[in-house]
Design a protein around this nucleic acid. Structure first.
Length: 544
RNA sequence: GGCCCGUUGGAGAAGCGGUUUAACUCAUAUCCCUCUCAAGGAUACAUUCAUGGGUUCGAACCCCAUACGGGUCACCA
């Protein structure tokens, strides 16, 4: 078998030595298959692998599991790396790393010789054998087993090709008959093994007794085999992967043992879930927008917020730590498996939004300008247009009520900024102005006179209290009480109170009933624009 | 269906045999502040830890059963 393979297991051991790392340093990995864009759960997994490697002074690498040629999507390999990088996850070694690393290749499709070397040895030892069973045969076997209510699968006496004569196997292969290679299990389904999982603790699992396929008929290895071989020769110390793998742990354990490899430590990560009609299910790329990491990029959620959120579901003590270390870097937080939940958290978009608001509120106007512009260039031409008309103007807008102890938290994403600031731009202001929204209780004539007075006499050049005093005085002339309290004491004396007058001004200036502080808006707009907008409105007011 | 794992408020969760009146964060609600909104401040929200039974002087914490939820049973990863 495999006459072209001359290398031995020993050669491989020599070629891929243990890394020279300090004690306790973890070698971790992320092993995606290139079947589409990065899933939020995968980002979570890669983030955790990277964090454990880095906080222990170890190495995080990426290995591409591209052995399923049918499901592969061309180009998704690079997209995966790019999207990880966008979230600050970057391999130290392996696929997509600057440093290629000495334990490669890191693309499974390029490791065929390594797998064949191991398989050749396994077959020589009698621990693996070629199997010629067809799909139909296998189907029939399963149906038979199901009808008898016995354990299904290819194992024990059902493993028809276990003892197929060697000469016949050789001639069958030479004649081109398709085959797979199976691992000859020695396990007993009724015996249990104890396995330690870093998150779940000690697990008691039934031994594997299936002669699983390790090499498919297309000559590529299956996941189970590639995992064992790769994580051994890549010298992984800590395998972190989704919890869907715990069920196949006995297979892996048996192979590690029979190959004489040390087993790495395992951490089976919880899967991120979603509530769907009262039932929990895995976050699905097809049904849930937030399942694809690109969603956050496209909508301009700051990556720091997404990462921060992922940490809150990774470790339950993270939020408390963050409260005490408000400005500390994420790398100062020590992630542990003890504080990791066993079952999947429900993805909470509301919390992502909350964290995003906090993250954006903490930024300076300059940072916001730079980052928003970068976002807009890729995803939002409309926003880019506004920014590029005058970056300083944009900065001034976004700086409103920012440089204070409790800055505004309006923006939940870069994308959301657009809707909040549109009215500062004349064209958007004019098209969105809707005077029917004016309070009908105030006569149009009063509105007109008030706005006229405001446009000619309102002073907002000095400070805010001075402006507000002046505003109250002018409003008073037209029957508005200087405060809600005073208005309530004698409602008949007034047509409204200062809040109502402010609403008129606000609507006239912005087209909106809810905006940040009016004084600051006018400061940004500037006197000529304020006057011009007021005149524009007076002009538009119905004539009666 | 078999086998694994789990079940504390709307969400993430802390607690792991006795000062727990079950932390903390988000969400929600009310109030205060206030030119509106956002923010901020205050308060409320699980008499009870899926249910039933045990063990114990004492249980969310230990044991058993039931229910429910998740995972897995491929030449997919």
């Amino acid at each position: 078998m495999f006459p072209d393979i001359q290398e031995t297991l020993e050669d491989l051991e020599r070629r891929y030595p243990e890394r020279d790392l300090p004690k306790g340093a973890e070698v971790t990995r992320f092993a995606p298959s290139p079947t589409g864009f990065l899933h939020t759960g995968s980002l979570f997994a890669s983030l955790i692998a990277q964090t454990f490697a880095h906080q222990s002074g170890g190495i995080f690498f990426v290995r591409l599991e591209d052995t399923d040629t049918k499901r592969e999507i061309v180009g998704s390999d690079l997209a995966l790396i790019e999207q990880m990088a966008a979230f600050g996850v970057a391999p130290d070694e392996g696929f997509g790393a600057r440093e290629p690393g000495r334990h490669g290749p890191y693309r499974q499709s390029e490791r065929a010789r390594i797998y064949k070397t191991v398989i050749k040895e396994l077959v020589r030892r009698g621990d693996a054998y070629p199997c010629f069973a067809s799909t139909e045969e296998l189907d029939e076997l399963r149906k038979y087993q199901e009808s008898r209510k016995i354990l299904t699968g290819y194992y024990g006496s059902f493993a028809k090709y276990r003892d197929y004569p060697v000469e016949k196997a050789v001639s069958d292969i030479e004649s081109g008959r398709p085959y797979v290679v199976r691992f000859r299990s020695q396990g007993d389904h009724n015996c249990y093994i104890k396995v330690r999982d870093e998150i779940r603790g000690s697990l008691s699992l039934s031994q594997n007794d299936q002669d699983i396929v390790i090499l498919k008929s297309d000559g590529l290895p299956t996941y189970h085999f590639a995992h064992v071989v790769d994580d051994h020769f890549m010298r992984t110390t800590l395998v972190s992967r989704g919890e869907e793998w715990v069920a196949s742990l006995p297979i892996h354990i048996e192979m590690f043992a029979r190959l004489g490899f040390n087993t790495p430590r395992f951490a089976h990560l919880p899967v991120i879930m979603k509530l769907d009609e009262g039932k929990k299910r895995k976050l699905s790329k097809r049904r849930d927008v937030e399942a694809a990491v690109s969603f956050f990029l496209e909508h301009g959620y700051p990556v720091a917020a997404v990462i921060e959120y992922l940490f809150t579901i990774a470790n339950s003590n993270f939020e408390e730590w963050r409260l005490l270390n408000k400005t500390a870097s994420l790398t100062d937080f020590k992630l542990t498996f003890e504080k990791m939940s066993l079952d999947g958290a429900l993805f909470d978009m509301a919390k992502v939004v909350f964290i995003s608001k906090e993250v954006l509120a903490a930024k300076s106007a300059q940072e916001l300008l730079t980052e928003t512009r970068a976002y807009a260039m890729s995803y939002h031409p409309g926003l880019l247009d506004l920014i590029d008309r005058d970056p300083e103007y944009f900065k001034a807008i976004v700086n409103i009520e920012r440089e204070k102890e409790n800055p505004r938290k309006d923006y939940s994403s870069y994308e959301s900024i657009y809707e909040f600031i549109k009215y500062f731009y004349r064209d958007h202001y004019e098209t969105s102005l809707d005077l029917t929204r004016l309070n009908p209780a105030v006569p149009v004539a009063t509105v007109r006179s008030l706005l006229w007075a405001l446009s000619t006499r309102m002073a907002f050049e000095s400070d805010e209290p001075a402006w507000f005093e002046g505003f109250k005085a002018i409003a008073g002339e037209y029957g508005f009480a200087p405060s809600g309290k005073i208005f309530k004491q004698n409602p008949d004396l007034y047509i409204g109170h200062i809040g109502d007058a402010a609403e008129i001004l606000r609507l006239a200036l912005t087209g909106l009933k809810q905006t940040p502080n009016l004084f600051q808006i006018m400061k940004v707009l500037g006197r000529p624009e304020v006057v011009s907008r007021l005149e524009f409105v007076i002009d538009k007011l119905p004539q009666k």
